[in-house]
Write a protein that binds this DNA or RNA. Structure first.
Lengths: 193, 193, 193, 193
DNA sequence: TATGAATGAGCCTTCATTCAT
DNA sequence: GATGAATGAAGGCTCATTCAT
C-alpha cells in the first residue's frame, strides 16, 4: 500500500539479509553445514524460503558470504605492526585480541573450524584461508623480528600452532578448559621483552 | 561340488570388509562424511552398493567402526610411563610416535579432525574422544612429573595444544609445512632433561 | 505482484492433500498397501513424488490418515439407538446404511479388509478396530434387546458375522454376487417385528 | 563322503522342502507375505538361502506351493454328498470339519485369509479360489436340496457367508470369541432336520 | 547337494531450488 | 519484495535372486 522509497527498500534488504546471515551462521555452527537446511535457516530468520533466494543465489553462496564476512574480521591486524608500545606489548595485544574474538563469537569460530576441515568446503576457500593465514603469520613473524628473536619465522609458527591448539581444545571442552591460564602462560613465554 | 569351508568364507568376509573400510576411510577423509555416498565407497572398494550392508548395518555404523578402529591404535601408550630410559627420552619417543602415526595415516587423521568439528557427529563420539584425550594427557602429565617439571599439568596442556596445532597446520598445508623442524623444536623445548 | 493469501494457500493445500489421499486410497485398495509405491500414488494424484511429504510425513502416516478418516465415517450410528420407528425398522435401516456405505466406497472397504489381515499393519490399528467393532456390536445388541430378542448378544454376533461374510463375498465376487437378495433375506430374518 | 542312494537324496529333498514350506507358512501367517524375507524363511527352516532356490524357483513359487497345498486340503468334501446318515447330519459334520480345520491350523488360515485380500496375490489365484468356493458352495447347496430346503442356493450362500464371517471374527479375536457357541447355533439353525 | 557372498533394481525419503501469484 | 507449494535429482537402504565353489 504505502509506496516505499528506495532507501526504505534498501533498509529492508539489509535487515533481511542480515537476519538470514545471522541465522545461517548460528545454525551452521550448531548443527554443521550439511545438516542445516534452507528451511531451517528461513524459519530462524523469520523469512520465507523463497526470499532467501532473493538475497543469496544458493546455499553455497550463503556460506561464501559468511566466510568472507569472517575473513574481513581482523583486518585491523596490520595496525599492530607499528605503534608506540614495544613489540612484546603489541604481540600481547594481538593474542588478547584473538582470545577476545574467540570468546565473543564461539558459534562463528566453531563453524569456521568445522568448515576448515570439511574437504568439500575447504577446497573452495583454501586460497583465501591460506592467504589469510600467511598474512597473519607474517605479522607475527615481523613482531618477533622486531623483538629481536633469533628465528622469528619458527617462533611465529610455534606461537601460531600453540594458539590454534589452545583454540581447538577450548572449543571442544569449553568451560572445562583453563583458557585464561593457558593464554597467560603463552604470553609469558612469547611476549616477554 | 564342494561348498566353501567356513575358513574360506571368513577370509572372503575379512577381505571385503577391509576393502570397504579402507575405501570409506579414504573417501570420508578426502570428501568428508556427509559428502561421501555409499555408492562412491562401494565403487572405490570394488564391490556393489548392497554389499556394504552385509558388513555394516548403516553408513553411520561404518563410521563407528572406523572411529573405534582408530581409537584402538595407540593403546600401547601406557608402556611409555615406565622404562629404562629417562622421562625426557620417553617423552621424545611419544612425540615421535605421534608424528609417525600422523604421517602414516593422514586420511584417518583428516577424518578424525574433520569429524571432531561436525556437531551432528561429535555428539556420538564426544565421550570416547574426551576419555581418550584425557588419558593421553595424563600420560604426558605423568612424564612431566617424573621429569620434575614445576607444573606438570600445565606443561602437558601446553605440549598437547602445540602438538595439535602443529598437526592442524600440517594437515592443512602438507608438504609446505616444516613438520620435522617444528617437532624437533618441540622436542628441544619440552624433552630436554 | 501480490503474494497469495492465506486462504488461497489453504485451498491449494486442501486440494493437493485430498488428491493424494484419494489416489492412495484407490491404489492401496487395488494393489494392497505394500505393493503400492509413493511414485504410483504421486502419479495417480497428478503431483510430484516429493509433494506427498509436504502433507504426510511418511507412507505409513498416509495410511493412518486414511484409516482414521474411514473410522470417522458412520459416527452417526448411535442415533439409531432411539427414535420414533420400531427397533426392527431401525435395525433394517442400519443394515441398509451399512450396505450403502459398502457400495459407495468399495476401494476403501477392500483396503480395510485387506489391512485387517496384514499382521504388520493390524498391530497399529487393532485397538482402534476392536473398539469400533465392539461399539458397533453393542448398538446392534441393544436394538435386539429392544426388539425383545431372547439372546440379544448372540443374535448380534450372528448378524454381524453374517453381514461381514456377505461383505466378504461381495468384495470378492462383485457383480456376480446377489448382494441385494442376500441383504433382503437378512432383513427378513433379523428385522421382523 | 558316504555316497547316498537315490532314495536317501529324495528323502533329504522331501525333508528340506517340507521344512521350508512349514517355515514359510508360519512366517507368512505371522508377519504377512510381503514382510517376510527369504532370509528369514531360510533361517527358520534351517537351510541356506541358496538352497531354497533348489526347491522353489522364487518367493512367489513358494507361495504358489503353499496355496495349492492348502487347496488340496478338504478334497474329501465330496464324500459328504452321499452317505448313510441324513443330509442334516452330513451338513453338521461338514461344519464341524470346517471348524476343526480352522482351529488346528490357525497360521494357515490367517495366511489364506490375509492373502485373499492382497490384491496382487489374489489375482494370481482368483480362478483357483473361485472354483474352490463354487465347488464348496455346490456341495452345501446339494445338501440343502437333499434336506428339502425351499431355496437351497440362497440357504447355501447364507450359511457360507455366516460361516466365513464367524471365521473372520474368530481369527481377529481368538480366545475372546465364543466360537463354540456360534457354531452350535449355526448348526441348530441350518442343520435341523 | 549346499553355502552364503555378491549383485542391483527399486523403494522411501530429503532437500536445494523454482515459480506462479 | 514476499510467499510457500511444487519439483525432481539423489541418497540410504532392502531384499529377491544369482553364482562360484
Amino acid at each position: 500500500m504505502s509506496p516505499k522509497t528506495k532507501e526504505q527498500y534498501e533498509e529492508i534488504r539489509q535487515k533481511s539479509a542480515e537476519a538470514i546471515l545471522q541465522a545461517a551462521l548460528e545454525l551452521f555452527g550448531h548443527q554443521g553445514y550439511h545438516s542445516t537446511t534452507i528451511s531451517q535457516i528461513a524459519k530462524a530468520a523469520g523469512v520465507s524460503k523463497g526470499l532467501m533466494y532473493n538475497y543469496f543465489p544458493s546455499k553455497e553462496a550463503l556460506l561464501d558470504e559468511i566466510i568472507h564476512g569472517v575473513m574481513a574480521v581482523g583486518e585491523g591486524l596490520m595496525t599492530l605492526l607499528e605503534g608506540p608500545s614495544s613489540p612484546g606489548e603489541r604481540l600481547r595485544k594481538l593474542l588478547l585480541n584473538n582470545i577476545e574474538m574467540l570468546k565473543s563469537n564461539l558459534h562463528f569460530w566453531k563453524l569456521i573450524t568445522s568448515l576448515s576441515f570439511q574437504p568439500e568446503v575447504v577446497e573452495r576457500y583454501s586460497d583465501l584461508i591460506r592467504t589469510k593465514a600467511r598474512a597473519n603469520l607474517e605479522v607475527v613473524e615481523e613482531l618477533f623480528r622486531q623483538k629481536g628473536s633469533p628465528d622469528p619465522r619458527r617462533e611465529a609458527l610455534m606461537l601460531s600452532a600453540t594458539l590454534d591448539g589452545i583454540f581447538l581444545h577450548y572449543l571442544n571442552l569449553r568451560e572445562d578448559y583453563p583458557l585464561e591460564e593457558m593464554v597467560n602462560h603463552l604470553i609469558e613465554q612469547f611476549c616477554s621483552e
